[in-house]
Design a protein around this nucleic acid. Structure first.
Lengths: 287, 287
DNA sequence: AAGTGGTCTAGACCACGTA
DNA sequence: ACGTGGTCTAGACCACTTC
């Protein structure tokens, strides 16, 4: 198959290799580039269901002859689809239409003790289990100097030693998010289990509440950006996929007690907040 | 300058053109690709302040000789920096280090009438003006069939005619976000100013509240993804920049009354939510 | 006119996955 | 062994911007 610019044009008389190229997408003024027309054609096939999630795409060499384009041009087209998140690639394996399984997190209820009991345990585990999937967390505890943006939120001096509880979280064994929680030194001294390098079964929020440190409010901040090389490795994503960064600073009535930085892949997560009076939704599906 | 794989290797004895290429980054096993080493070098120069925001980078041809690489390889390196959002490019102009001016939106207060008076006007204008910038909105009103995801949130049938108030928003004349608000037909019939194709000076939330339709709660949903071609055009962003998509469904005590879809560039916006009791912050900077 | 990035070709070698 | 994607080269023409 050959993609013509706007109206069909003849392919004959391709003189030099560059003239021939031009007759399809280069000489003609104001025509959309060939790589984009190829990307559009493939995108249409994917979204219209011609290629379904999990299915392999034709190989680059195959597409090359199918669209009468050079391999670089085909690669540029595929690269576009990867950046759009429609397609994944890995060395040695064909391009694949990506599976879109989306996970929803209700941030306004997350860590809210009214929605859980002491037996329930960790907020994250609960949310994942509730959606019928299997959670896993790899824990790690470190003592680190507070980065400026953390110190600012915790009302401490930059560089002061803080306890960092870091974990890499999995959903059905797929790396899903990283989470780093910073606690001020004074708090950890009074509540030493925060420094234990393993999960706290009833959840840290509950542990602190049971010992008189009640987190009554939190400020959340969200941003989205391309993954750093570190994040790309930890979350096993390519540069075309953006990450959502969630910063939650928890407060008691007097002061901030912790700051949690979570990163997700931006395309496979939905975050919801319920604000005000949503009693209208009570009878409805809470999705 | 030449970037050697791990330790410096001799350049002599480049036989064929491919061998020569190999001696820098191809023959050697387990070395990071040349394009990535070039990208890393440039990224370091940018983040360490060698190239400051707004400054031009050397041209592709210049970098080509500087790093002894082909133009395609240099382009691949620059392409990754564009995808990371560090650099912008446009035809005919040199690559430029991107300016990072960030805008913060407090979503938990947005449209909350407790934080404004009848004279204040539009929520968006307020938020932008409060940060010392100049807002502008291009308005448009259409009657459209309700898309399924909108119908679902508004408790109406897909395809039912709804009123769509669409606007493209600017901050200091830079396209910043698009916003599309859908109102069910029955509501517009009772409150006809919703169908006027211009801004409602006191804000739609206030207009409805003054006529007995009080929005007492809202459910927000967030996601992040690569821009669609339409969004890329409207927001003037490239494919390397992700967009944040905000869906807010407003409810009265009885039912949903509107659904607003907002898209921003993900890298230049911060979204905050204040939850629970944050009286601890009262004396502090509310940034 | 000269310089810059955007598109495209043709062809090479390599690393990885599968069989 | 073979096919797939990943990296790289050398060189061409084009469109846009600036002078």
């Amino acid at each position: 198959m050959i993609l013509y610019p706007h109206t069909a044009t003849s392919q004959e008389g391709g003189a030099t290799m560059y003239q021939q190229a031009g007759s399809v997408g280069q000489d003609d003024h104001m025509t959309t580039p060939l790589y984009r027309r190829v990307a559009d054609a493939l995108r249409t096939e994917i979204t219209s269901g011609g290629y379904t999630p999990g299915m392999d795409l034709p190989s680059e060499r195959e597409l090359q002859s199918r669209y009468d384009a050079s391999r670089n041009t085909i690669r540029q087209a595929l690269q576009t689809l990867v950046a759009e998140g429609l397609v994944v690639s890995s060395q040695g394996r064909p391009y694949q239409v990506r599976k879109q399984e989306i996970f929803t997190l209700n941030a306004s209820r997350f860590e809210d003790l009214r929605y859980s009991t002491a037996e329930d345990g960790d907020s994250y585990d609960n949310d994942v289990l509730a959606s019928g999937r299997i959670p896993r967390q790899d824990f790690q505890v470190q003592l680190v100097p507070a980065p400026p943006e953390i110190a600012d939120r915790l009302w401490i001096e930059p560089g002061e030693t803080v306890t960092l509880r870091y974990c890499l979280r999995f959903v059905d064994d797929v790396p899903w998010s990283t989470q780093a929680t910073y606690y001020p030194r004074a708090l950890v001294e009074r509540h030493p289990r925060l420094a234990e390098p393993r999960d706290i079964s009833e959840g840290t929020t509950r542990y602190l509440a049971d010992h008189g440190v009640e987190q009554v409010g939190q400020r959340d901040e969200w941003m989205s950006r391309p993954p750093t090389p570190d994040e790309a490795r930890a979350l096993q994503i390519g540069p075309g996929v953006s990450v959502l960064v969630w910063t939650r600073t928890g407060h008691t009535r007097d002061r901030p007690v912790r700051c949690t930085l979570t990163t997700f892949r931006g395309d496979l997560n939905r975050i919801t907040y319920d604000l005000g009076d949503l009693s209208a939704l009570d009878g409805k599906d809470q999705s």
